[in-house]
Design a protein around this nucleic acid. Structure first.
Lengths: 229, 229
DNA sequence: TTCATGGTTCGATCTCCATCGAAGCATTGT
DNA sequence: ACAATGCTTCGATGGAGATCGAACCATGAA
């Protein structure tokens, strides 16, 4: 009957600092064990277990038991997108008290948003794609697709486009960037970009956290591949 | 340094049932007084005042004092979009326990998302616009714009397009629909559509709440204006 | 002025829930 | 078999904050 409770249910899950830290750590897209997450959030095992249980019941996390470990990940890209959007609100209305830590510039430059790239470089890529008419509005699930030229471009880079379109996950989605307040590319193509650039050695993900470093070579290659108009 | 606290700050604001009800009521886009919101949330004046203060400090609400009344609204369309997205998470992962109240079908059919239309009809409109190539990816702020044909169509309906593009608010934005999991149109054009259709008598907003009723005439007119392909 | 209405501040109460230690279960390794 | 590691459950504790009544300020009406 009321929409309030729905908001409250999810909000309460995100509202606890320990749980928020857990979610933030999982925004890296990595699968982390309960003990790793406990350390990340600065809490003990039992407390983490309780939180993880609630996050599972709330549908924000999924669990994969492997051996005696239990790996947790965000339940899906949409969860990551919502978390990014929430962080966007915090950053925007944070007003004067913008807590810009030391890692902040690196985060703004390039970071992982669950399974795709976000930050300045991601926005640049999106802008470049649209400027060259590689993206088009379509009736696909994500609402967007590749043009003929765009498909050619993606294949030329060395990405197996057919593999991406086979699944039922949308190829292209837009995701609102927290730091830039602009759109960047999500969907299976966005995810493929990230993994491909990492494979090429152009990007390097930090072992822990969401920050992505761009190698000198990657900087050059990406600037060449995605020129700004 | 950590992204957790940002999430927690906003999450805690949304996490309280009373505050969530307040936010849900304001999703209608209407400006409501403190007492109205207190009644809506089922709390007394002092409690509401405390909550509203926190929501203000958190940047989710803005306040306009007029006479001895104090009118509260969401701080902006982005706040509404995030709230819708959060509700989407709740609805999606709610799975078996989908709390579909009596008002639910009406909400799914057509509702207000702060200042524009959402729900089944809104998705239909978006689909129809894109199918006829009225929308295009652009370098505008919102990431999307109208094509030549689209501009003509909008003007033909009777909307003053120049007035919309003059402000610095993006003309077209996409907003993810909670019930349909598809895109619908936001931005200044989305807002203009809503007000225009209401002016025409095609849509009627309930005095309280977010539900929008479609008149028989509106049903016919809108179906004619936005055919599905 | 005097009254009435809308809102806020203050102080006290109370409920909820995050937290941790200890014990228990599961899985792997020796 | 036994030990060790990862994780969960249980129970008790503590603290944050939601709530309300009463008093207080502000604005408009009589």
């Amino acid at each position: 009957m009321k929409e309030g409770p729905d908001i409250a249910r999810i909000g309460a899950l995100m509202g606890d600092p320990a749980r928020a830290n857990i979610l933030g750590a999982l925004l890296s897209g990595k699968a982390l064990t309960a003990t790793e997450l406990a350390a990340e959030a600065g809490i003990t095992g039992p407390t983490a277990s309780s939180h993880l249980k609630k996050l599972m019941e709330g549908g924000l996390l999924t669990q994969a038991k492997q051996g005696r470990h239990r790996y947790f990940t965000l339940a899906g890209p949409e969860v990551g997108a919502v978390l990014e959007a929430v962080m966007g609100l915090a950053a925007r209305r944070g007003h004067l008290r913008t807590r810009t830590g030391p890692k902040d510039p690196a985060m703004r430059a390039a970071r992982v948003c669950y399974d795709h790239l976000a930050g300045d470089m991601a926005v640049r890529i999106f802008d470049s794609l649209q400027a060259r008419d590689f993206l088009a509005i379509s009736k696909d699930k994500g609402g967007f697709g590749l043009t003929e030229a765009g498909s050619g471009f993606v294949r030329e880079i060395g990405i197996d486009l057919d593999a991406l379109t086979s699944g039922r996950r949308p190829l292209c989605r837009v995701c609102l960037d927290w730091s830039e307040r602009r759109n960047h590319l999500a969907g299976s193509l966005g995810a493929a970009f990230l993994t491909h650039f990492v494979d090429q050695g152009w990007l390097r993900r930090e072992k822990t956290g969401r920050i992505v470093h761009i190698s000198p070579k990657g900087q050059a290659e990406l600037k060449a591949l995605f020129p700004v108009v």
